[in-house]
Amino acid sequence: FPASRFTGFDYHVDSIKAAQRNAEKAQVADRVSFQVTGAQDFEGEDFDLICVFNALHEWGDAVGAASRIREALAPDGLWMFTEPLADPYPQESVRGRTFFSVSTCVCTPSALSQDGHESLGAQAGEAELRRVAHAAGFTRFRRAAETPMFMVLEAS
Protein backbone atom coordinates (compact mmCIF):
# COMPACT_ATOMS: atom_id res chain seq x y z
CA PHE A 1 0.00 0.00 0.00
CA PRO A 2 2.49 2.64 -1.13
CA ALA A 3 -0.11 5.46 -1.03
CA SER A 4 -1.12 4.68 2.58
CA ARG A 5 0.44 6.01 5.77
CA PHE A 6 0.73 3.98 8.95
CA THR A 7 1.53 5.08 12.49
CA GLY A 8 2.27 2.72 15.35
CA PHE A 9 1.92 3.73 19.00
CA ASP A 10 3.27 2.08 22.13
CA TYR A 11 4.45 3.32 25.50
CA HIS A 12 7.41 0.88 25.49
CA VAL A 13 10.46 2.74 24.15
CA ASP A 14 12.46 -0.35 23.13
CA SER A 15 9.53 -1.74 21.14
CA ILE A 16 9.21 1.55 19.25
CA LYS A 17 12.96 1.62 18.53
CA ALA A 18 12.82 -1.95 17.21
CA ALA A 19 9.79 -1.12 15.05
CA GLN A 20 11.58 1.91 13.59
CA ARG A 21 14.64 -0.19 12.77
CA ASN A 22 12.42 -2.80 11.11
CA ALA A 23 10.64 -0.13 9.03
CA GLU A 24 13.99 1.24 7.85
CA LYS A 25 15.26 -2.25 7.06
CA ALA A 26 12.07 -2.98 5.08
CA GLN A 27 12.44 0.38 3.29
CA VAL A 28 8.99 1.62 4.33
CA ALA A 29 10.08 4.32 6.80
CA ASP A 30 8.82 6.98 4.37
CA ARG A 31 5.23 5.90 5.11
CA VAL A 32 5.45 3.99 8.39
CA SER A 33 6.22 5.85 11.62
CA PHE A 34 6.12 5.11 15.33
CA GLN A 35 5.56 7.15 18.48
CA VAL A 36 6.20 6.45 22.13
CA THR A 37 2.89 7.33 23.76
CA GLY A 38 0.02 5.93 25.75
CA ALA A 39 -3.43 4.93 24.57
CA GLN A 40 -5.13 8.03 25.97
CA ASP A 41 -2.77 10.64 24.55
CA PHE A 42 -1.51 9.55 21.15
CA GLU A 43 -1.34 12.22 18.45
CA GLY A 44 -3.24 12.35 15.20
CA GLU A 45 -6.71 12.64 13.81
CA ASP A 46 -8.84 11.60 10.86
CA PHE A 47 -7.55 8.03 10.89
CA ASP A 48 -9.51 5.76 8.56
CA LEU A 49 -8.70 2.70 10.64
CA ILE A 50 -7.31 2.21 14.13
CA CYS A 51 -6.32 -1.31 15.11
CA VAL A 52 -5.65 -2.53 18.64
CA PHE A 53 -4.44 -6.09 19.02
CA ASN A 54 -5.01 -7.89 22.32
CA ALA A 55 -4.39 -4.81 24.45
CA LEU A 56 -7.61 -3.08 25.56
CA HIS A 57 -7.96 -5.39 28.56
CA GLU A 58 -4.48 -4.36 29.77
CA TRP A 59 -5.18 -0.61 29.88
CA GLY A 60 -6.01 1.02 33.18
CA ASP A 61 -8.62 3.28 31.59
CA ALA A 62 -10.24 1.30 28.79
CA VAL A 63 -13.10 3.78 28.35
CA GLY A 64 -10.68 6.72 28.24
CA ALA A 65 -8.53 4.97 25.65
CA ALA A 66 -11.58 4.00 23.58
CA SER A 67 -12.78 7.62 23.77
CA ARG A 68 -9.45 8.88 22.45
CA ILE A 69 -9.63 6.31 19.64
CA ARG A 70 -13.13 7.51 18.71
CA GLU A 71 -11.94 11.15 18.70
CA ALA A 72 -9.00 10.27 16.44
CA LEU A 73 -11.09 8.49 13.80
CA ALA A 74 -12.29 10.14 10.62
CA PRO A 75 -16.11 10.57 10.50
CA ASP A 76 -16.44 7.27 8.62
CA GLY A 77 -13.46 5.62 10.36
CA LEU A 78 -13.45 2.19 11.98
CA TRP A 79 -11.91 0.82 15.15
CA MET A 80 -10.93 -2.83 14.82
CA PHE A 81 -9.65 -4.64 17.88
CA THR A 82 -8.98 -8.16 19.03
CA GLU A 83 -9.57 -9.50 22.50
CA PRO A 84 -9.41 -13.00 23.99
CA LEU A 85 -12.43 -15.16 23.31
CA ALA A 86 -13.91 -15.57 26.78
CA ASP A 87 -15.29 -18.92 27.84
CA PRO A 88 -18.56 -18.90 29.79
CA TYR A 89 -17.18 -21.75 31.95
CA PRO A 90 -13.40 -21.28 31.85
CA GLN A 91 -12.68 -24.16 34.18
CA GLU A 92 -13.97 -26.55 31.49
CA SER A 93 -11.42 -25.70 28.80
CA VAL A 94 -7.66 -25.38 28.49
CA ARG A 95 -8.15 -22.05 26.71
CA GLY A 96 -10.28 -20.68 29.55
CA ARG A 97 -7.92 -21.85 32.28
CA THR A 98 -4.93 -20.46 30.38
CA PHE A 99 -6.49 -17.06 29.71
CA PHE A 100 -7.70 -16.67 33.29
CA SER A 101 -4.27 -17.64 34.64
CA VAL A 102 -2.47 -15.18 32.39
CA SER A 103 -5.05 -12.49 33.15
CA THR A 104 -4.59 -12.93 36.88
CA CYS A 105 -0.79 -12.82 36.73
CA VAL A 106 -0.13 -10.38 33.85
CA CYS A 107 -3.09 -8.49 32.35
CA THR A 108 -4.96 -7.40 35.45
CA PRO A 109 -1.84 -6.24 37.36
CA SER A 110 -0.74 -4.34 34.23
CA ALA A 111 -4.06 -2.49 34.07
CA LEU A 112 -4.12 -1.82 37.80
CA SER A 113 -0.59 -0.35 37.68
CA GLN A 114 -1.74 2.38 35.29
CA ASP A 115 -3.76 5.52 35.77
CA GLY A 116 -7.42 4.70 35.61
CA HIS A 117 -10.13 3.12 37.65
CA GLU A 118 -10.91 -0.21 36.06
CA SER A 119 -9.24 -3.40 34.99
CA LEU A 120 -11.04 -5.52 32.43
CA GLY A 121 -8.72 -8.52 32.55
CA ALA A 122 -8.29 -10.97 29.67
CA GLN A 123 -11.75 -12.43 30.12
CA ALA A 124 -13.85 -9.27 29.89
CA GLY A 125 -16.17 -10.89 27.37
CA GLU A 126 -18.10 -9.37 24.52
CA ALA A 127 -20.81 -7.72 26.63
CA GLU A 128 -18.26 -5.82 28.73
CA LEU A 129 -16.30 -4.80 25.63
CA ARG A 130 -19.53 -3.54 24.06
CA ARG A 131 -20.17 -1.50 27.24
CA VAL A 132 -16.71 0.08 26.97
CA ALA A 133 -17.25 0.96 23.29
CA HIS A 134 -20.67 2.49 23.96
CA ALA A 135 -19.38 4.41 27.01
CA ALA A 136 -16.69 5.87 24.75
CA GLY A 137 -19.30 7.13 22.32
CA PHE A 138 -19.29 4.45 19.67
CA THR A 139 -22.78 3.71 18.38
CA ARG A 140 -22.05 0.63 16.31
CA PHE A 141 -20.35 -2.51 17.67
CA ARG A 142 -20.11 -6.04 16.32
CA ARG A 143 -18.05 -9.20 16.38
CA ALA A 144 -16.68 -9.28 12.84
CA ALA A 145 -14.87 -12.62 13.12
CA GLU A 146 -13.23 -14.98 15.56
CA THR A 147 -10.39 -17.44 15.74
CA PRO A 148 -10.19 -20.33 18.19
CA MET A 149 -8.53 -17.90 20.65
CA PHE A 150 -9.65 -14.35 19.84
CA MET A 151 -12.63 -12.20 18.87
CA VAL A 152 -12.17 -9.63 16.13
CA LEU A 153 -14.43 -6.71 17.04
CA GLU A 154 -15.26 -3.48 15.28
CA ALA A 155 -16.79 -0.25 16.45
CA SER A 156 -17.70 2.98 14.74
Rank of each mutant, 00 (worst) to 15 (best):
Gly137Ser: 14
Leu85Thr: 09
Val132Pro: 00
Gln91Asn: 15
Ala135Phe: 00
Arg68Lys: 15
Leu78Lys: 14
Ala135Pro: 00
Asp87Met: 10
Glu92Val: 05
Glu92Arg: 14
Gln114Met: 13
Ser93Cys: 05
Met149Asn: 12
Gly64Tyr: 01
Ala124Leu: 05
Gly96Ala: 12
Ser93Trp: 01
Arg70Ile: 07
Gly116Tyr: 04
Trp59Asp: 02
Glu146Cys: 08
Glu146Asp: 14
Gly125Ala: 07
Gly125Lys: 04
Val63Ser: 06
Gly60Arg: 04
Gln91Arg: 14
Arg142Ile: 09
Arg131Ala: 06
Ser113Trp: 02
Ala135His: 09
Thr82Glu: 00
Ala72Phe: 07
Ala136Ile: 03
Asp76Met: 12
Glu58Tyr: 04
Ala145Gly: 03
Glu118Ala: 13
Ala127Val: 05
Ile69Gly: 04
Pro109Trp: 04
Leu85Ser: 09
His134Tyr: 10
Gly60Glu: 02
Pro148Asn: 04
Tyr89Pro: 00
Thr82Met: 00
Gly77Thr: 13
Pro109Phe: 03
Glu83Cys: 03
Ser110Asn: 13
Ala133His: 01
Phe138Arg: 12
Phe150Asp: 08
Glu71Ser: 13
Gln91Tyr: 15
Gly125Glu: 02
Val132Leu: 04
Thr104Lys: 15
Leu129Cys: 10
Arg131Pro: 00
Gln123Ala: 15
Pro84Asn: 13
Pro88Leu: 11
Ala86Thr: 15
Met149Lys: 07
Glu92His: 13
Phe81Arg: 01
Glu83Gln: 03
Ser103Tyr: 02
Trp59Phe: 15
Gly60Ser: 11
Ser113Arg: 13
Arg95Glu: 11
Leu129His: 05
Ala136Arg: 02
Glu118Cys: 14
Asp76Ile: 12
Glu83Phe: 00
Tyr89Asp: 13
Arg70Gln: 15
Leu85Glu: 09
Gly77Arg: 13
Pro148Tyr: 07
Ala86His: 04
Thr82Leu: 00
Val132Phe: 03
Gly125Thr: 11
Gly137Cys: 12
Leu129Gln: 08
Arg95Met: 07
Ala72Trp: 09
Leu112Gln: 14
Val63Leu: 02
Thr98Arg: 06
Phe141Cys: 01
Arg131Val: 05
Ala62Arg: 05
Pro109Lys: 07
Leu129Thr: 12
Glu128His: 06
Leu112Thr: 08
Ala66Gly: 11
Glu146Lys: 12
Leu129Tyr: 03
Asp87Leu: 01
Gln114Leu: 05
Glu128Cys: 08
Ala122Ile: 06
Ala66Lys: 06
Ala62Ser: 14
Met149Ala: 14
Val94Arg: 10
Ala135Val: 06
Ala136Trp: 01
Ala136Phe: 02
Gln114Cys: 10
Glu58Gly: 05
Ala136Ser: 06
Val63Asp: 03
Arg68Tyr: 09
Ala111Asp: 05
Gly60Thr: 04
His134Lys: 10
Cys105Thr: 11
Arg130Pro: 08
Pro84Gly: 07
Ser101Asp: 11
Ala111Met: 06
Glu92Thr: 12
Ala145Tyr: 15
Ser101Thr: 15
Asp87His: 09
Asp115Thr: 06
Val63Pro: 05
Leu120Ser: 03
Thr98Val: 10
Arg143Asp: 11
Val106Asn: 04
Asp87Lys: 03
Glu126Ser: 08
Ala62Gly: 08
His134Met: 06
Phe99Leu: 10
Val132Lys: 00
Gln114Thr: 09
Gly77Ala: 12
Cys107Asp: 06
Asp87Val: 05
Gln91Ala: 15
Val102Asp: 01
Ala122Met: 11
Ala135Lys: 11
Thr147Phe: 08
Glu92Gly: 07
Phe150Lys: 01
